[in-house]
Amino acid sequence: MASSIHVDIVSAEGEIYSGSAAMVFVPAAAGELGIAPRHAPLLTTLKAGEVRVQPAGGGEEQLFWVGGGAIEIQPHLVTVLADTAARAKDLDEAAAQAAKQRAEEALKDRSGEMDLAEAQAELLRAVAQLRAIEKLRKMKRA
């Protein structure tokens, strides 16, 4: 079919939509983009906004909200890679800083959980020893 274009909308956490469409509208970085079948191959990024899909052969227009992402367009194929998270350079940077800090704090905090884990291991060892002693006693008695 020349008058339709296949659309896949996926996010990292799941597939959102897959089907053929007569027309697709996406919020591209440079402004809204209408994609008809046999569009020139194009790669671009998406802003947060709505993706509208007009299904092939009529039917109601479908709306999807994306928080940004990327789009690949080929003459018969549109792939929308939607981001599930709000992303920006400084946001990512802040998240990275937080992850670093978590690691540092976890390493510094040697008192709490660490002692607990060690105490648990010690306890297990003691219980095993006790069990062995009990068995030995029984053997002697028998």
Binding site: A12, E13, T84, A85, R87, D92, A94, A95, A96, A99
Partner: peptide, 8 residues
Amino acid sequence: HLADLIGT
């Protein structure tokens, strides 16, 4: 969630 993993 992917969002929690990005920074890490």
